[in-house]
Design a protein around this nucleic acid. Structure first.
Lengths: 111, 111
DNA sequence: GTGCGTAAATTACTTTATGTAACCGAGTAT
DNA sequence: ATACTCGGTTACATAAAGTAATTTACGCAC
């Protein structure tokens, strides 16, 4: 009967809980290119609303993946960047990119 | 002004759309150990409801990641397994596991 | 055959998450 | 003063997920 009592590694579960929320991976992917401002992220990911972006950035900051830096210039500038923990996700992103390239088919627009 | 017009690779985006849905990764992770029946997956992932499992398995089958096999035995047996495309996600899972092990802290139960 | 149980779902209903759009406060430009 | 940008927040509407009961098709005990 013992179906499958293999416990999931709690760290793995927690990582998945963080990373697999909607938009999270795409936000991180954007930040791999370098620090970005709120609006830049918002406008570069279509359908991502400021509301959710704000939530995600808070979660990621809380988790230690993203760093929020305030530059006290004339009009204050706020930049979001990846911490070391965040940059360490780069190989993972490459894996997804590789897998996608190998397996994902895109339906062609009519030629 | 040109904020960041870098387009996301559509394959990458599609892959993320598939993989980052709630439960999807955990279901695939479970199937990496070998074929499983519906109830086994359901009971091994707490809080995953039959409803959503059913949806996810259909999506994954549709995407070519999961194979649904019907064994016409006395009480019919249905097994879900990974296709080659699905098994090719193993390195990604390993990377997530590695990253989680390196960075994710678990709050300790009181000793 | 009646009642009971299991596997694999599906349906109806509730709760949570996300999307949309308007609004705010600080700063700057006209 | 007016309008515009940035970095948000708020209020409301829709979509997705959770909960629980029901369904269909079996087998099993009686």
């Amino acid at each position: 009967m013992a179906a499958d009592l293999t416990q999931l590694c709690p760290r793995f579960e927690k990582a998945i809980g963080l990373l697999s929320k909607r938009w999270t991976t795409l936000i991180i992917y954007r930040l791999l290119d370098g620090p970005r401002r709120f609006v830049d992220i918002e406008t570069s990911l279509s359908n991502l609303s400021g509301k959710v972006l704000s939530e995600r950035l808070k979660e990621l900051e809380e988790a230690g993946v993203v760093l929020r830096t305030v530059y006290p210039e004339k009009p204050v500038r706020i930049e979001y960047s990846l911490t070391e923990m965040g940059r360490d996700l780069a190989p993972l992103m490459d894996d997804i990119q590789g897998w996608a390239t190998r397996w994902i088919k895109i339906e062609q627009e009519q030629v």
